[in-house]
Amino acid sequence: MSKVAITRAFTYREEEVIKGLEEGFNLLGGLGNYVKPGQKVLLKVNALSAKTPEQNVTTHPQVVGGMIDLLQKIGCEVWVGDSAGGNMQQGSPTGTALKVSGIAEVVEKKGAKLINFDSTGFEIRKGGKVFKKLYIAKPLFEADVVISMAKFKTHGLTLLTGGVKNMFGVVPGRAKANYHKEAQTVEQFCLGLLELYREVKPHLTVIDGIEAMEGNGPSAGNTKKCGILVISSDAISADRVLGEILPCRFEDVLTTYWGHKLGLGEGDIKNIEVLGTKIEDLGITPFKLPNTKLVSALPGFLTGLVVNMLKVVPEIQEDCIGCEFCINSCPVDAMALSEDKKAVIDYEKCINCYCCHELCPKKTIELKHSNKFGKFIAKLLNRRL
Score class of each variant (00 low, 15 high):
Y197I: 00
G215M: 07
S219Y: 11
P218T: 13
I207H: 09
M213K: 04
V200M: 10
P218M: 07
L193P: 01
N222H: 14
L196C: 02
G217L: 10
L193Y: 04
E211H: 06
L193W: 02
E195T: 11
M213G: 09
L204T: 04
N222W: 02
A212G: 06
T205G: 05
P218I: 05
G209Y: 10
V206M: 13
I207R: 03
L193Q: 07
E211S: 12
L193E: 03
H203K: 15
G209V: 03
L204Y: 08
A212N: 08
L194T: 13
Y197F: 15
G215K: 09
L196Y: 05
H203C: 00
A212E: 05
N216G: 02
H203N: 14
G209R: 10
N222T: 13
G221A: 14
Y197T: 02
I207M: 11
L204Q: 07
A212L: 09
H203Y: 00
E195F: 11
R198A: 15
Y197A: 03
A212T: 06
L193H: 02
H203P: 00
E199C: 09
V206K: 04
N216W: 03
E199F: 03
L194M: 07
V206E: 07
A220R: 07
A220Q: 13
E211R: 13
P218Y: 03
H203W: 00
M213S: 07
R198W: 01
G217S: 11
P202L: 14
L196V: 10
E214R: 05
V206F: 07
L193C: 13
T205D: 09
E195P: 06
A212K: 03
E214I: 01
Y197G: 11
L193N: 04
I210C: 06
G217P: 11
I207W: 06
